[in-house]
Write a protein that binds this DNA or RNA. Structure first.
Lengths: 330, 330
DNA sequence: CTGAAAGCGCTAACAG
DNA sequence: CTGTTAGCGCTTTCAG
């Protein structure tokens, strides 16, 4: 900028304003500045600019796993919303580890991101996250997993409802021995389990303890869990899986055992991942409006960023719905 | 920092050094500084620090599509490599649009990223990318798609080889009327097509023009393209698809038409995406070492970043290999 | 081991 | 419409 100013015999300030198309610079001057800037291959230094304006035009997105297509889809939604507005996104992978997550969030705050979208790993009720976020005045939106009792912006689904919906669907399909491959001990996992129990109770079906086995987030854990269920003296005739990857793993185990999905065992997942309908047996699933999560969260965040003062927290609950495919068609 | 210095009766400089564990600060002083910093909930301002050190500890990753699991996997590899080192990643989505791509790269450079990893969209031989990157001295690594004749760091596969390998495999399985659903007119698409032609020629098979149809990157385009092939008077008995999503779409079309994969038509893809083996018909594919792409690129970039002066460009070509599954088992 | 001076590249606020 | 002044929060010399 100094070079441009010198070459043109104007002040540095004039250059600065011209480059940003500030109103009170004559068209002629601006043109000269822009021309010279191009000639010199000038590029503004955003770091310096950010230091004074306190705006970075960077959004932090913290997710537990980029490969999980649910989060990839969310990430895409966020990108699509913010990128055209001149923002860029730092995507941090927490690897489902709340310490990593916390460190990443600290770093993002240190980088003065304009806003934060977080799908919290929150493995065991740590409140560090809240402490970190709450004490700073960075706008943030939580997605998918709502740490309990936190009064913050949230976009996601009611997990109980997913569990209840899925289990009820299995019941309606005539299943009577319904198992659940549950997720980890976080909100989503706990909520879905609760919904499952509720639906079974409501239908007067027994909820055998050995019918609830632990899985993780991925297909391998679903496979392992299903083998465990198959090993029972009295295997289930329907399985509600924590999510689609788990369900995919479970189906693999069932098919490998020479059994039929859905006739021997019906399977339902959650998440409606992109490939669910081209699987060996197209997977019935509970759709949780993945795309909306990203875009809605972005919208809320954008509002918070633009508004002068703190708005009161918004919660958007997306209505889950069953997408029926072959894996439960009995 | 001023507050800490005042409270402790030391200079700002002492605080700065203590916080960074600079050698020439006594342990006692450091402890006091750290303690007070914690009490005040001090967090360093990376923007200010970066302005003077010229290091941001941010890497830019520019990819055409986050949802494509190939790039998601690459992103994961990059994250896993850099995050533990204190770097964060800005992921830019170019949406397969070279103008968006260029704008994003400019922005990333303006943000003083320490390095860049780019899977270029480079739709039509635009050299803007090169001009932008070349003129600045930001270290960068190209992945997956090598803009022709560019002397830069590159990690990827030889696309001809993928095409040849895939086509040869179909020939070995006894296919004689081999079609190709080709990708877009970028390096990867062109290279794979070339390999396909070469393999057919070598085997003395006819390469009918109507057997090469255009797809894009996604499953929908594969579905559409396959329907076109099925509409021919003399449909093919083997199809080599540009990538796995396209192949998945193609298989869907074949199965819907009441035909069998692989008996009526064998299908092979490329990329070995994660779900390839749990599909209706497990998909034979050409593995291109996806994970390696991310990690190797990160390693090269890291070297460039740490080394004082420009190293000479490295090219890493990953050996593709056929992963045989049911979709070609005749 | 501690600190004073100078400045990274840019912009807000105010005067002319 | 143009320019001056005073930093943003931090670090790099270099001198005690």
């Amino acid at each position: 900028m100094i070079d441009i100013a010198r070459d043109l015999g104007v002040s540095l300030m004039t250059v600065s304003k011209a480059l940003r198309s500030h109103t009170d610079i004559s068209a002629a001057t601006r043109a000269r500045v822009l021309k010279r800037a191009r000639e010199l291959d000038y590029r503004p230094n955003w770091i310096a600019r950010s230091l004074v304006t306190r705006r970075t035009y960077v959004i932090g997105l913290v997710i537990p796993d980029l490969m999980h297509s649910f989060f990839a889809e969310v990430a895409k939604g966020v990108t699509r919303k913010f990128q055209p507005l001149g923002y860029q996104i730092i995507i941090s992978n927490s690897e489902e580890n709340s310490e990593v997550e916390e460190r990443q969030i600290e770093l993002l705050i240190s980088r003065n991101v304009d806003g934060l979208i977080v799908a919290s790993a929150q493995s065991n009720g740590r409140r560090g996250l809240f402490a970190t976020l709450g004490s700073r005045e960075v706008p943030y939106v939580l997605i998918d997993r709502m740490p309990s009792g936190l009064d913050a912006n949230f976009v996601g689904v009611k997990d109980d409802e997913i569990g209840a919906l899925a289990s009820r669907h299995l019941i309606e399909q005539g299943c009577r021995r319904i198992a659940h491959i549950r997720g980890p001990a976080i909100q989503t996992g706990i909520g879905r389990l609760r919904g499952y129990r509720r639906a079974l109770a409501k239908a007067g079906l027994a909820a055998l303890p050995e019918y609830v086995v632990s899985g993780q987030h991925n297909d391998i854990s679903g496979y392992v869990a299903m083998r465990q269920l198959l090993g029972l003296g009295h295997p289930p005739d329907g399985v509600f899986c924590y999510n689609d990857p788990v369900a995919i793993g479970a189906m693999k185990a069932i098919l490998e055992a020479g059994l039929s999905v859905p006739h021997d065992i019906a399977v339902i997942g959650a998440g409606n991942v992109h490939y669910s309908d081209v699987l060996a047996v197209p997977l019935t699933t509970v759709d949780q409006g993945t795309v909306q999560v990203g875009t809605q969260a972005s919208e809320i965040l954008m509002q918070q960023i633009s508004s002068k003062r703190a708005l009161r927290p918004k919660t958007i609950l997306i209505k889950p719905r069953v997408v029926i495919r072959k894996s439960t068609a009995r």
